[in-house]
């Protein structure tokens, strides 16, 4: 285990050390202490390493992640796991706005609540939130799965393309072109797998599925000016 004191050694040294790890590195376990809400912790990683951040983080933690497994033992500021490509990011507390924004792949798990715009413009990432999500979550979501074990705020899935949204609790309102859809066996299977991989104890049958009505992004003369 490599322990890195962020306060003593600084952000640039941390990210350089983590980004320098190769595919075959033997230094696979890293612990970051004294994060103190700093921005851009553990960004741009591209190796199968495990990073544990002991505390809360500021903006853009674990952004652009590839392959790495990053755990935040606290809450995360805006834009956690933004544009993730692969790997896993776990936030043990809450996440601020636009968690997992534009993510292409990988799994983001938030044990607490996520605030507004969770999964905005998601492009293939899987996001599992054990608590609630705020307004405008999955706005313009294109691909991937957003699982919400609690409630969803206003305008869920506004202008959504082809992402799947699963919500166990209430949905305050659905955004433009987002509708409730039938939960078919293949969806229950996707959900079961995501809940299991996230370590969440919930039954897939308790969720409802939402997605695109496909009326907004297909050309329709009534939508033209």
């Amino acid at each position: 285990m490599q322990t890195f004191d962020l306060e003593a050694r600084g952000l640039r040294a941390l990210n350089e050390s983590l980004q320098a790890q190769s595919q075959q590195t033997n230094e696979t376990a890293w612990e970051v202490v004294n994060p103190r809400g700093s921005h851009a912790i553990a960004v741009g990683l591209d190796a199968p390493i495990e990073v544990t951040v002991n505390g809360s983080t500021g903006y853009y933690c674990a952004g652009m992640n590839k392959q790495a497994s990053i755990t935040v033992k606290g809450s995360a500021g805006p834009g956690v796991a933004e544009n993730m490509m692969s790997g896993t990011v776990i936030v043990e507390g809450d996440a601020s706005q636009y968690a997992g924004a534009t993510g292409h792949g990988g799994l983001l798990v938030i044990r607490g609540n996520a605030s507004s715009r969770c999964g905005i413009s998601m492009k293939g990432i899987d996001i599992v939130v054990q608590g609630n999500v705020g307004h405008m979550s999955a706005f313009m979501a294109q691909k991937g799965n957003l699982v919400v074990c609690g409630d969803a705020g206003e305008a869920l899935g506004d202008s959504i393309y082809e992402a799947r949204l699963f919500v166990r609790g209430s949905v305050k309102s659905l955004g433009a072109d987002c509708i409730e859809k039938e939960m078919r066996p293949e969806h229950l299977e996707i959900l079961r797998d995501l809940l299991e991989r996230s370590g969440v104890d919930a039954k897939p049958e308790e969720f409802r599925r939402y997605g695109s009505a496909r009326k907004l992004y297909n050309f329709d003369i009534d939508n033209a000016y």
């Binding site: 103190r36 809400g37 700093s38 809360s56 983080t57 500021g58 903006y59 809450s75 500021g77 507390g93």
Partner: peptide, 16 residues
């Protein structure tokens, strides 16, 4: 930001 709060007494156990 949370950064502004990190030196407050008892922040580790505060409701944030």
């Amino acid at each position: 930001e949370y950064r502004a709060l990190v030196n407050l007494p008892g922040i580790e156990t505060a409701r944030v």
